[in-house]
């Protein structure tokens, strides 16, 4: 993505970035190291995929970045802000959608109300969000009765409706079939095209290939590699990453 001249840069272009982590460690309840010395820097203008097998620590890393967990050691800053301070300008989509026992529409309204959007303004924003996610005709259905793919699209729409500067997604299509996965990926592309910085996790190499501009390869709590997607998929530097993208089962 070409950088615009400094003076022409649109005001407020993602001041949350760069995301910088330094020596990030997280210890689980049984004193096991789940993340061990993870350091990286993410700048603006990319779709980043955190790739790694199950149990690598991807979800924990994303929760740390969003301020839902506290690191045992190390630093996280979003353009200088702490994760807690930056969280309100981010959207988060969980691996298992957390949907309220309400209608599709009421799920979106809930976030708008929390963020202080005036009641009169909410209707139009709900409609726009559902439209973008292809859920407009399901607005009055109970959210938890939707299909898995529709539920995840609703989660994305709900995270997106506040137009966050950063959208974090934790394996948003890990339990979906190919058609539903494609719909989710299309939506993620649209979010990114709309200007949100997308950071998502996946264990699906194909998905990483389709969506990533750059890849963080995480394995057993270690960040083994951080490269642009093109060079990562052409030939990863780390042997474990090479075996992983060849489809070997690493653990």
């Amino acid at each position: 993505m070409a950088e615009v001249e400094g003076s022409l840069e649109p005001a407020g272009a993602c001041p949350l970035l760069p995301l910088v982590t330094d020596g990030l460690c997280f210890t689980g309840g049984d004193r096991r190291l789940i993340l061990d010395g993870v350091s990286f820097r993410l700048d603006d203008g990319f779709r980043t995929v955190i790739l790694g097998p199950n149990g690598a620590g991807k979800s924990v890393l994303l929760r740390l970045c969003h301020g839902l967990l506290r690191p045992t050691a190390g630093q996280i800053t979003w353009g200088g802000l702490s994760p807690a301070a930056a969280a309100s300008r981010q959207g988060m989509v969980f691996q298992r959608p957390v949907l309220l026992r309400r209608s599709v529409r009421a799920n979106i309204e809930h976030v708008l109300a929390i963020k202080g959007v005036r009641a009169g303004e909410r209707g139009a924003r709900v409609r726009a969000a559902l439209e973008r996610a292809g859920l407009a005709r399901l607005a009055d259905r109970p959210a938890r009765m939707l299909s898995g793919g529709e539920q995840q699209r609703l989660s994305i729409a709900r995270a997106w409706v506040m137009e966050p500067e950063v959208l974090l997604l934790d394996e948003p299509s890990s339990s979906l079939d190919p058609a539903a996965t494609r719909a989710v990926e299309d939506l993620v592309r649209e979010v990114a095209a709309g200007g949100a910085r997308v950071i998502m996790t996946t264990h699906d190499i194909g998905q990483a290939r389709r969506l990533a501009d750059d890849v963080l390869f995480l394995h057993r709590g270690h960040l083994l590699e951080h490269s642009p997607a093109s060079s990562f998929f052409a030939g990863p530097a780390h042997p474990a990453a090479a075996r992983f993208i060849q489809g070997d089962l690493i653990d």
């Binding site: 969003h66 839902l68 309100s88 969980f94 957390v98 109300a113």
Partner: peptide, 20 residues
């Protein structure tokens, strides 16, 4: 247990959380 992370993620205060 189910809603906690969502409520914290969107910055819901204690009253809003209990109401939900």
């Amino acid at each position: 247990e189910e809603y906690d992370e969502y409520l914290r993620s969107v910055g819901a205060g204690p009253l809003r959380s209990i109401g939900t």
